[in-house]
């Protein structure tokens, strides 16, 4: 039971990092990405590659993963952010599809469809983290650090620039903001931080394959952000916790036919999303904000 709970907390922390980093570009800069799982995957593969070929120390795996995520995001952002917002969504979807193919085929790095096994545990200055009760500590601290960085950015002039761009790109430019550059920087920061979650995930499970980094994951992360509350800082964490806990909660309900649990889960998701859109379009945390906006 304790192991089960620890596992949940670890996964919630990792997915909270994913949702928070997506929210950073979605909620503050108005950039909608369907490729978030790609950067999660790139972080996982790059961290694993360094850990198995070179050193498992996080002082090597984390920077390598972050650089890989940042560089790849530049390839997406440089062409796609010069044009209007809709194109970024399309371009990110394209990258997501392409990346899944590469993750499945580039066997020497990703292990192909079968994935990689025996990924070494995190090595923090010589201390190997492999027990769940140690790992939970690392992921929670990791989440706190990521949240702190995002919080500082959001409340700086950079964060104001992002929100200004989200609200009116032309006005932001008219006040001296280099819109494509600022957007690109925000995507690069977001992707680099996303890669951190990838490193944690890979060394926690000690096994990864392409299944974890598909479009489904990107959509799941986006759902976490929207359900929790886009543009709020607590929202993505609440969204991540809710969507990860829901399956376990449903399986505790004895009166449900256990053989049909999968489809019941889908029905509850669908119903929940529809109700949320009707009654709390700003997400769970975004409620207050939304009703305030309605008043004139």
């Amino acid at each position: 039971m304790e192991a089960y709970l620890l596992n949940l907390v670890i996964l919630i922390s990792i997915y909270s990092i994913l949702a928070s980093t997506l929210n950073f570009i979605m909620g503050y800069a108005g950039i909608y990405s369907l490729a978030h799982a790609v950067f999660f995957g790139v972080g996982a593969y790059a961290g694993t590659f360094v850990a198995t070929h070179f050193s498992a120390s996080i002082f090597f795996t984390l920077p390598a993963a972050m650089i890989a995520g940042a560089v790849l995001s530049l390839i997406l952002a440089l062409p796609a952010l010069r044009v209007r917002g809709e194109y970024f969504v399309a371009a990110s979807l394209g990258l997501q599809v392409l990346a899944v193919t590469i993750f499945s085929e580039w066997k020497s790095v990703t292990g192909g469809i079968g994935g990689l096994i025996g990924i070494p545990p995190l090595d923090i200055a010589g201390f190997e983290v492999f027990k769940p009760n140690q790992f939970v500590f690392v992921t929670v601290v990791g989440l706190i650090i990521v949240l702190f960085i995002i919080n500082r950015l959001v409340h700086s002039s950079f964060g104001r620039s992002l929100r200004a761009i989200r609200d009116s790109e032309s006005a932001a430019a008219a006040f001296g903001k280099n819109v494509p550059l600022i957007k690109t920087i925000s995507v690069v920061i977001s992707s680099a931080l996303t890669a951190v979650a990838g490193v944690m995930y890979a060394s926690y499970l000690s096994f990864i394959n392409v299944e974890s980094f598909t479009l489904d994951t990107s959509v799941l992360i986006m759902a976490m952000v929207i359900i929790g509350g886009t543009g709020t800082q607590a929202g993505p964490i609440i969204g991540a916790a809710l969507l990860l806990l829901l399956p376990s909660l449903i399986s505790y309900l004895d009166f449900l036919p256990q053989t049909e649990i999968g489809s019941i889960q889908q029905i509850i998701y669908g119903l929940g999303m529809a109700l949320l859109m009707i009654y709390r379009p700003g997400g769970i945390v975004g409620l207050k904000k939304q009703s305030g906006g309605g008043k004139k």
Binding site: L153, S156, S157, F158, R160, S161, R163, A164, A172, F175, G176, K177, N178, L181, I182, I185
Partner: peptide
């Protein structure tokens, strides 16, 4: 405030 902050890099 943001109208007088033209710097791109945080």
């Amino acid at each position: 405030l943001t109208s007088i902050e033209a710097n791109s890099v945080p």
